[in-house]
Write a protein that binds this DNA or RNA. Structure first.
Lengths: 226, 226
DNA sequence: ATAATTATTTAGATTTGTCTAAATTTTGGA
DNA sequence: TCCAAAATTTAGACAAATCTAAATAATTAT
């Protein structure tokens, strides 16, 4: 009962969307995958039959324990390949996502584990996202969205959730990358923009649209990359 | 007009079969791919429409120049990944084939070329097969089948064409791997078996069924692996 | 609370790659 | 040469994954 390529993409995307909301809507999933809501409805039934998701008409989707584990193993492979591409093949962290998107579907456990060994069993990928271990366990770090975080000083960029190359390039140019230290200088209520200062740089104003993609840790600890 | 996963497998398999015969039959291709002749007939029409193969009803298949180039690029990726698996991930050369079978379909040129660089731009894969260059050129080495070769002394194993793990293991145990030196001691006409001596080993009789998968070079030169 | 809007599902069709069974073509032997 | 066997193609069907358009359910705004 191996998953198809497509099923893997659904499962993985559902997992990603569940990080934001308790259930995933048909429309949100369709948009994330790049298909129509009707197709998602269809596939939802199939995934429910395979016991990978909980799904009831008009009630949205969640992952079952089985589905969650499957998702975490796909994400493990994705993130390990991203490490490989950046560390060994000298890709920049903006450009690895779509290649890893394909490599993640090669399902050999032996391959995955040897790749992890080769890379020194890394705990985070080049975007700062944690890598689940071989049995699908993921260390939940305390991350908060830049828009919501309460502390104002000594924040560390944990993750950037959006994968568009142009946004990533913009952020990189401004020093905003996993591991970067920053303080919040001011919040502007009128448009929810955030004024920040990345360590050793000039202040910078970040729009709400961009800030919502930036996650920070309040207690900086080892996690960034050189 | 990118090729699908399936189309890539057809093209690659046609290329492999064309090494033995001038045209590929529907039945032979079906057997090699693991499908039915009827399916091959169907796909043949589609590949002809895409100008990848020459195909006329009842006349078998050949590759067009375009199809040949596509095949060589797939094979380049396959063999580079085999090198990676053996050299970097310490797989044995018997077990890499099926994993490379999946990795070969990731089509990023940048990935392929950086992988090649990482590996030191190898010329042959772990089975001794030559790796086409980035533009699809392959150096035709002078290889002959163990059953047909005229010289009897100082032969070097160039390639083993069969990919079954059990056969590869058997050959490896007997020192028959790319680069190995051997002499032919005798041929037995009654069953076409061949008696050989691999350098520093006892004589060994190889059946016709196995010998036909072994290709040798008559003028040993750099090409084997350590 | 009801109407209007939005989200979701159903119905019916399409594409890709496959199958089996039947029909046709090619080939090799008497 | 001609006929039987083998190879190949055609015809019709199916499963996976998708689509559009229409129908239905849920949400929201007045």
């Amino acid at each position: 009962m191996a998953l198809t390529f497509t099923e893997e993409n659904y499962i993985k995307t559902i997992y990603m969307l569940l990080r934001k909301d308790a259930v995933v809507s048909t429309t949100a999933l369709a948009a994330a995958i790049g298909t129509t809501p009707a197709s998602v409805t269809d596939m939802s039934g199939k995934l429910r039959d395979k016991q990978l998701v909980e799904y009831e008409k008009y009630r949205g989707l969640t992952l079952t324990p089985q589905g969650l584990k499957a998702a975490l193993l796909i994400i493990r492979r994705h993130r390990l390949w991203e490490c490989f591409l950046v560390d060994q093949l000298k890709f920049s962290w903006e450009e690895v996502h779509e290649i890893a998107e394909e490599l993640e579907h090669v399902r050999s456990v032996k391959l995955t584990e040897r790749l992890s060994d080769l890379l020194g069993n890394p705990q985070v990928d080049p975007h700062g996202d944690p890598i689940p271990d071989a049995s699908g366990r993921i260390p939940r770090t305390i991350q908060e969205n830049l828009l919501n975080v309460l502390d104002y000083k000594k924040l560390e960029v944990a993750t950037v959730t959006d994968q568009s190359a142009s946004l990533l390039k913009f952020l990189d140019r401004n020093g905003i990358r996993p591991g970067a230290q920053l303080d919040i200088l001011e919040r502007h209520d009128f448009d929810h923009s955030v004024e920040i200062r990345v360590k050793k740089r000039s202040p910078l104003t970040i729009s709400e649209q961009i800030a919502k993609h930036i996650y920070v840790r309040t207690n900086p600890k080892a996690g960034g990359r050189p």
